[in-house]
């Protein structure tokens, strides 16, 4: 049986609305209007042990609701969810022992204390055997490069440092499953790379299942084998990253900054999508023309000041999936 089984999850929320302005506030004193939102509208998937799954979708699509259900924080209105044979919200304490959770925007470390104290406290909370704790801690400290952070109060750490410490904290008890919720948001480039590499390596060595929600397609590309796309509470695509690519033929972008205002000349198989003050936005299909080919082509034809490749934002990807379905 799969490690994680989710079947037909449905969850609805009721949200109160307020009118703007002073009169609206006064009116709100007496009468409130409510709106029902389908956060999850029949979500199903299953995940095998040691899979690396990216879970993407626009804000409010139901990503974090799904993660909350799987973490045992939220009970769905209907549907089935079993993780390691357990229903998460039924036996919360046993279930969450198998989980590591990292919320990108919030830390689980004690704000005013040195990092090491938080680690020690987590050892007691999770009842981690001494030997396992020391081994894990020392390994993570070394690999994540957080030696220097250990004696520093959390509030004095940079975001990148803090997130690396948070990641270590979430894994101290050797969980079977790791949830990462927007972990790289706001991180500096160096920390991002260290973070991603660590997750890949940890997954290879320990076989930990990783479920990652993110807005950064680069995270997905580096870490994940499989991508699930959720939109309006429904899974609209689930499969290997390459398959998704093929299905929606994701255009990539090459952004070029030119030395002078000269009209750019471009490879015949790429399209100029926009051009403004010497900054040219080129779209291309990586299956038709490779990025390296295109870059050498562009640099040979133009005097280039700067050049970089961009993934399209997730919103665009989703729009394309819908287009593909309509076709």
């Amino acid at each position: 049986m799969s490690q994680i089984v989710v079947e037909d999850l449905v969850k609805r929320f009721r949200i109160s609305e307020r009118d703007p302005g002073m009169m609206g506030a006064v009116r709100g004193l007496f009468r409130r209007r409510y709106q029902t939102v389908d956060a999850l509208d029949g979500v199903s998937f299953s995940i095998e042990p040691s899979e690396l799954v990216g879970y993407i979708g626009p804000n409010g699509a139901g990503k974090s609701t799904t993660v909350k259900v799987m973490s045992g924080i939220l009970v769905p209105d209907s549907g089935r969810c079993e993780i390691l044979g357990r229903v998460p919200w039924r036996r919360r304490n046993e279930h969450v022992k198998e989980l590591g959770v990292v919320f990108g925007q919030r830390t689980q470390l004690w704000w005013d204390l040195p990092v090491i104290e938080s680690f020690d406290l987590l050892r007691d909370i999770y009842r981690i055997p001494r030997v396992e704790y020391v081994a894990n801690r020392d390994e993570f400290v070394e690999v994540l490069g957080i030696e220097a952070c250990l004696d520093v109060p959390v509030r004095q750490l940079s975001l990148g440092q803090r997130m690396r410490c948070d990641l270590a904290a979430a894994l101290l008890h050797s969980p079977a499953i790791l949830f990462l919720d927007e972990p790289t948001i706001g991180m500096d480039a160096v920390s991002k790379i260290a973070f991603r590499e660590f997750i890949k390596r940890f997954n290879e060595e320990r076989g930990t299942t990783v479920i990652l929600t993110t807005h950064d397609m680069d995270d997905i590309e580096v870490i994940c084998d499989r991508v699930m796309v959720i939109s309006d509470g429904m899974i609209i695509s689930d499969g290997k990253l390459e398959d998704l690519r093929k299905k929606v033929s994701i255009e990539r972008r090459l952004v070029v900054e030119l030395e002078d205002g000269a009209v750019p000349a471009v490879h015949p198989r790429a399209v100029i999508a926009g051009s403004e003050r010497g900054r040219v936005d080129i779209r291309f299909d990586p299956d038709v023309v490779s990025a390296t080919e295109l870059i050498s082509d562009v640099t040979s034809r133009n005097r280039v000041r700067d050049i970089f490749v961009e993934n399209p934002p997730i919103e665009e990807l989703i729009a394309r999936i819908y287009e593909g379905q309509g076709r």
């Binding site: 909350k68 973490s71 045992g72 924080i73 919360r92 304490n93 046993e94 969450v96 022992k97 989980l99 959770v101 919320f103 919030r106 689980q108 909370i125 999770y126 009842r127």
Partner: peptide, 18 residues
């Protein structure tokens, strides 16, 4: 409000103790 209670729910200890 801050979501810190969610964090508490993801730990294997009773909410009252935490």
């Amino acid at each position: 409000k801050s979501g810190d209670f969610d964090r508490i729910l993801t730990r294997p200890r009773s909410t009252v103790l935490q």
